[in-house]
Structure formats: structure tokens, C-alpha cells
Amino acid sequence: MEDYKYLFKVVLVGNAGVGKTCLVRKFTQGIFPPGQSATIGVDFMIKTVKVGEDKIKLQIWDTAGQERFRSITQSYYRSAHAIVLVYDVACQPSFDCLPEWLGEIEQYANRKVLKILVGNKVDKEDEREVPERIGKNFADANGFDYFLETSALDATNVDTLFQEVATRLTNDMKLTDERFHNFKSNENRDGNISILDRVLERAKCANCRT
């Protein structure tokens, strides 16, 4: 089997034309294909990155941005470890739609999902309509874990973005693993594993409800 420590699912969402596919292409293949045809439904791409000594595999789900495709893309939110919400810094309406996208994320994604806000196309500095601090403020005010401005065209922050996603998810996962192992060793001393399962189950349900 392939050697990787963790596999994470990352879902990219955001208005049509903000550059989701280009970000993914730049990251996975190192190319910026102008005239990349619109994503219909959901596309899938993969890339392995390194976090410390660990190989981390990122499964990237690239979704169609047009509003009517949301009914299809929603079903991919639930299993996502991270959701990258992208807007175009040179397109105010794509920023104005963020509350709608947040609503979608709250409704369909896991509560503990890593939320990243990305302002793409910073190469278009002359046409910028959304100042960086406004993006940053929005991210802070709305519980995003991370905010970043990128350009798929000139590669600004593209690797950083996905590296950061991988690092944060890995750290979270290691923490969970540690807790799990501590817990498990305690449980083992008592010789009762089924309690562990039940507790974990309960914790999960509690998360779902809140």
C-alpha cells in the first residue's frame, strides 16, 4: 500500500470564476492553464505533501461555482476535513456572496471542519475591489481558521495555502491520536474497551447537536 500518514479531504467552494480550478491545478500540476473550462459538477485531484517527516495526502474536491450546482456539491461537505472558501479580490460580488457560502458550510459540513478563507487573483492589484484587511476582518469575525490572499497566475501563496491546510489538519489529527492513545491505555488498564467506544460515540453526537 502507499505510504502516507494521513489522508485529508479538502473541498474548494466559492462563486463561479474566482479561480478554484486554477488554484488546484497550480498546486497539483504546477500549471496555470488560461481558459480552463468551467467545472461541471465536481472534479477530483490529489497531491502528497510533507509535514515534518510525515507524508500527507490531500484529496482535493474542486466544485462548480454556479449557484444551481450547490445541490450537488453540498453532499461533499460532510466528509470534508477542510473547506477552502475562495473569492476573487477583483470581484466585489464574489466577496458579497461569502455569507451565503458560510450558511452552506454551517448547514452541511462537520462542525469541526477547518475553514479557510482565500482571496484569489492578487496579481490583479490594479483592479482590486476587496482590500486585504476587509478579507482578514471577515475571516476573523466569522470563525475562519486561516485567511490568505493568493494568485494562481503568479503562484503567490498557492503552495503555502495547501501546506498550511495539511499542517493544521496533521497537528489536529496528532492531538486527537495522542488523546485517543492516552485514553485507550487508561481503558486497557481497566480492561474495558467498549466504554471507550460509547464515550467517543456520545462525544460525536454532542458535536452534531451543538
Binding site: 449557484e67 466585489q92 460580488p93 458579497d96 456572496c97 455569507p99 451565503e100 476587509i134 471577515f138
Partner: peptide, 18 residues
């Protein structure tokens, strides 16, 4: 289609913009 150019809630912290 629902499109609201510049929703003010986005600029809650941005007095000047609003």
C-alpha cells in the same frame, strides 16, 4: 438569482465603506 452588491453586514466593521 440572489445577488446583493455590497451587503452592508459584510462591512460591519468598516464604517467608512458602509
Amino acid at each position: 438569482m440572489k445577488k446583493s452588491p455590497s451587503t452592508n453586514n459584510v462591512f460591519d466593521n468598516e464604517k467608512e465603506e458602509a
